[in-house]
C-alpha cells in the first residue's frame, strides 16, 4: 500500500540526516518522528500503552513490524471517547491512504431522500464526503419505513431535515445543505451546479428521466449516477452498473418497476444504493475513466 505523503528519499533511509531528524510519520493524524529502526509496538508502548487497536496505513495489525517514513499510525483504546480533534481522524482510520483527503473536499448532490437517497447519503457521510446537498419535497411517512433510513419518531418531518439529523449523529464532520423543494427540469441546473457528482434517487420514473436528461444537457461536466430497476426480490446480482452517456452511469436491472403486486423491499434497495454510493465514491477518486469527475487540483496516485 502506498503512503499518501511522499517524503524526500534521503529522509527515512539510513544516514546522518535520518538519525538527526528521525523518520517522519503521523500518529492519530498528528506529525510525529521516530528513530530509524523503531517498530510499531514500541511506538504504541511509548505513546498509548493501553491501546487495544493498532492501525498502520488503514490496516489493523496484531503483529509488530518496523516503521517507515510516511506511515500513518492510529492508536485506539476501546470504549474511550476521543477528543473532538482526534475523532475525525479515528473515524477515517480504516479508509486506507489517499481516500480521506479527496472525499473530504467533495460536494455531492442527492436528488431525492427516500430509499435510495437516505442510504446513499449515509454511506457517503460515513465515508467522510465533506459536503452533502440533500434535496427532497416530501415528509417521512409510515410506508417509507420498510426501506428508508428514518425512524418512527421522525414520521411527519421533512425528509431532508430528518436525514440531516441522522447523518450528523453518524458523522458530525459532514457539512449538509438541505433544500425542501420539488425538482423540475427548470430548477435542476441551478440546484446542482457546483456539485462534483449527483446521485439520482427519485422514485418516480418520469422524474428520473427528466433529471437524467437535464444533467446530460445542462450540466455536462458533472457525473450523474442514476437508477432504474430495483423493485421486488429478484437476484441482487442482477443490479448492475453501466455507463450510458458520457456523464451518466446507470445502476439497476433496468426492468423491474415498482408496481401493484411488486413492491420495494429493503434488501434490494440497499443493494442498489450500495452500488450507487460506490460509483459515486469511484467517481470522486477518479476510478471511472475519462470524464469521471477527478478534478485537476486533485493529487494523482499511480497504479
Amino acid at each position: 500500500m502506498k503512503p499518501p505523503v511522499q517524503f524526500p528519499p534521503e529522509i527515512g533511509t539510513e544516514g546522518p540526516r535520518a538519525d538527526a531528524e528521525g523518520l517522519p510519520l503521523r500518529v492519530n493524524e498528528r506529525p510525529h518522528r521516530v528513530a530509524p529502526g523503531a517498530t510499531l509496538f514500541q511506538l504504541r508502548d511509548r505513546l498509548k500503552p493501553d491501546a487495544d487497536v493498532v492501525i498502520l496505513n488503514g490496516f489493523p495489525l496484531a503483529e509488530d513490524r518496523p516503521l517507515a517514513a510516511g506511515d500513518e499510525v492510529v492508536l485506539i483504546r476501546r470504549g474511550e471517547v476521543p477528543s473532538p480533534e482526534e475523532l475525525e481522524s479515528l473515524m477515517v482510520a480504516r479508509h486506507g491512504p489517499g481516500v480521506h483527503a479527496r472525499v473530504k473536499a467533495a460536494r455531492v448532490g442527492i436528488a431525492g431522500c427516500g430509499g435510495l437517497g437516505s442510504a446513499v447519503a449515509i454511506a457517503l457521510a460515513r465515508t467522510g464526503v465533506g459536503h452533502l446537498l440533500l434535496v427532497d419535497f416530501d415528509v417521512v411517512e409510515p410506508s417509507n419505513l420498510n426501506r428508508q433510513q428514518f425512524f418512527i419518531d421522525q414520521i411527519g418531518l421533512p425528509k431532508v431535515d430528518a436525514l440531516r439529523d441522522n447523518l450528523l449523529r453518524m458523522n458530525p464532520y459532514v457539512r449538509t445543505e438541505t433544500r425542501n423543494l420539488r425538482l423540475t427540469a427548470r430548477n435542476i441546473p441551478e440546484t446542482f451546479a457546483g456539485c462534483h457528482v449527483i446521485a439520482e434517487c427519485f422514485d418516480d420514473p418520469t422524474m428520473k428521466r427528466d433529471l437524467t436528461v437535464a444533467v446530460r444537457r445542462d450540466l455536462p461536466t458533472i457525473p450523474l449516477v442514476t437508477v432504474s430497476g430495483i423493485a421486488g426480490y429478484g437476484p441482487a446480482d442482477s443490479i448492475r452498473v453501466r455507463r450510458i452517456f458520457r456523464n451518466v452511469w446507470l445502476v439497476g436491472d433496468t426492468e423491474t418497476a415498482a408496481a401493484p403486486g411488486r413492491g420495494l423491499l429493503a434488501p434490494r434497495v440497499a443493494v442498489a444504493a450500495g452500488q450507487q454510493a460506490n460509483v459515486v465514491l469511484r467517481l470522486l477518486l477518479g476510478e471511472e475513466g475519462e470524464g469521471s469527475g477527478r478534478r485537476e487540483s486533485d493529487p494523482v496516485e499511480e497504479g
Binding site: 427516500g114 430509499g115 422514485d203 420514473p205 418520469t206 430497476g229 423493485a231 433496468t254 423491474t256 420495494l264
Partner: peptide
C-alpha cells in the same frame, strides 16, 4: 444506440 428506459422505484 444507447437506449435507457426508466422504471419506478427508489
Amino acid at each position: 444506440l444507447e437506449i435507457v428506459r426508466f422504471v419506478g422505484g427508489g
